[in-house]
Amino acid sequence: MKLVQWVTIIVSVGILTGINYLLEENINPYVIRVVVNCGIGMILAMSLNLVNGCAGQFSLGHAGFMGVGAYTSAAITTVLALSPFFKTDMGVGCAIVIGGLAAALAGYLVGLPSLRLKGDYLAIVTLGFGEIIRIIFLNIEEVGGARGLPGIPPKANFFWVYLWVVITFVALLRLLRSSYGRAILSVRENEIAAESMGINVARYKVVAFVISSFFAGIAGGLFAHFQSFIDPNSFVFNKSVEAVIMVVIGGMGSLSGAILGGIIVTVLPELLRIFEQYRMVIFPLILIVLMLVRPMGLLGHKEIWELFRKKASS
């Protein structure tokens, strides 16, 4: 790696640690909670964006993969708790990565047979798989069943979540700019054309699906270790829809758009709490208006810096 990259990494970790310190010392815990939830939303939205936005496949089962990550990592740190190591920061970090890998494996198993389908059919199949995964957890007594799993070490704070936001962002950005990413994008644009150019369409779809599931699993692991409580109810179909909304609001295929979507879908309902029970009426109304005004999503296919560049050149 170049010196410049090392400096960037060190500087960003430094910035994150600084902000984390400032937050924990000064800011009220509710605001921290919303900011961290934003981060988890961003990771979830960016990961789903790879499948729904970039590869052009419509997945409706993302909460399921989030659940796999959450339950696997939480099981490692609470139920199994092989050594006290898994209660420390590093141990929880490892557990979250293992959770991500488990989700990736689940993504592979689900993706392999179902990605032969397209459009609506794929949406239904992924929806089904998402529900199956949830029902499996509902029936495993060892992780609490319907009661949920309490007492997960609350180690995921601002620093860890936003570190993962940066990792996810950089990883996906670099992926999209690699030949792999170009191949994934070509699948979205025109499958037949891509195939005739020698691209193994099915393979790239699965690749996108597995990577996406991995980061969804990471989001789940962070979620579990932030809330310190999970139950199958946390990963219902609605959660998948929420992720889809984030991607659509931000703009399909735009990474920065997914981040924006993650922020909006997390922060807006909190700001609307003043409306009490009408909150969940007003929130969808705002979404509808947003979709009418910007059918492409806030950023469309573009990234946020591309918008700035255009302005600068004109």
Binding site: Q5, T8, S12, L173
Partner: peptide, 10 residues
């Protein structure tokens, strides 16, 4: 370029 953009975004 990407590092720059990442930095800017950060």
């Amino acid at each position: 370029l990407s590092v720059k953009t990442v930095f800017r975004l950060g």
